[in-house]
Each structure stands twice: as C-alpha cells, then as structure tokens.
Amino acid sequence: MIQTFFNVEIIAASWPIVVAGLLNTVLLSLIVVPLGLFGGLILALLASVRHPAVRWPLMVWVDFFRAFPPLVLLILLFAGLPFAGLDLGGFACVAIAFFLNTGSYYGEIFRAGIESVPAGQVEAGRSTGLSRLQAMRYIVLPQAVRNVLPDLLSNTLEVVKLTSLGSVVAVPELLYQARQAQSLTYNPTPIVVAAVIYFLMLWPLVRLLSRLENRALAGRR
C-alpha cells in the first residue's frame, strides 16, 4: 500500500515537477487574490451609492457571477472565446474568470462590512468637513474590513483552493504538475504528495478560521 501511494523513490523523482507546480500555485494565488479583492472593493464602493440605477445592475452582476460555477466560467472563456477569434491562453482565462467570480463574492463581503458601520459615523465625518471619499477611506473602510475579516479570510482560502481549476486549462499549477508526474510514473504518489502539500499549506488558515467562526457565531446571540 505504502509502495503504491507513498513511494519514496517516486517522491524523489517527481519532486522537481511538483515543486515547480507549488511555486506556480503560490504565484497564481498572489495574482488572483489581490485581483479579486480589488474587484470586490470596486463593486462594494459602487453599491454604497444608494441610487437604484447603480444598485440594481450591480445586484444582477453579482448574482449572475455567483450563479455560475467557476469552472463553467473558465471553460466558457477558454473554449468559447477562440470561436470569436480571441485566444487568451489558460493563464489569462483563469485570471479573468477569477476576477469575475471571486470578485463578486468579495464584493458581497465588503458590502456587508460597509453596511455594518452605522450611518451616523459617516454623517459625523462629513460634518467635520471630510469629503464622501475621505469618510469612506478613513472612517468606514477600516471598520468594515475589521468586521468582516473572518469572511474575507474564508473566501481567500476558497480562492487559493480554486486555483486548482487551472489544471483543467493546462496552467502548470500544483495539481496539473502532479497529474503530469502521475502519468509519467504510472503511480498515484505525486497526487498524494500534492494533496499533502495543499493540506500543510492551508491547514493553519483553516485552524485560524475555525476559531474565528466559532467565536463569531457564539457571540452573535
């Protein structure tokens, strides 16, 4: 059993391939997480304009991209767009799909955070002479982010896990590289190794989140 699923020789042989994948997963995460945060922040800031002409299209946009499974969005871009003469390549498709999908999730979280700050604070800020943007920047956002920090972290965990979808469009991230190594060695060890790496990489975050969530739910009664 150990010979099959955790073969030391195969670990040694496939190590460079797997590590290259790990580096790409980290790199991909470092690109798509800020991209999603940025997209979400813009959505939430737009949503704070309480005009129905802004609010409704935003809600449609957010629900639209939350209803699509991320993989469907990715395939749509990767396999559909070339028919319109637009071949972006796997990496760009992942970046765009994530921007649309995770941006919508981050947007909902930021919006909840902004709404959690009492309106009186903005009014107080405005009355001392701060502009709308300044009030948002210095009074609302810092508190909003603190209030929804567990949700932001939880979504970030999901985004990092989602980077494994890159393997479907041949982005050489951890899962893709592990599958390559598996088909080269005729042995499942590289995939097991990849799973162990994901677990070790994300476990601390899961532990932290589990504490934060327990406290949040218990404190909200």
């Binding site: 896990k161 989602l162 980077t163 393997s167 899962l175 599958r179 499942p188 995939i191 994901y198």
Partner: peptide
C-alpha cells in the same frame, strides 16, 4: 476536507484509488 481543494479530492479518488 476543508483545506483540500475539491478537485484534488475528486482526482485522487478517480485516478488514485484504481491503483488499490
């Protein structure tokens, strides 16, 4: 199961278990 990406679990089951 919270820290593993779902796709990794699926791939592990579908491509890994047959070796056992």
């Amino acid at each position: 199961f919270r820290s593993l990406p779902p796709l990794v679990i699926i791939v592990l089951m579908y491509f890994g278990l047959p070796y056992a």
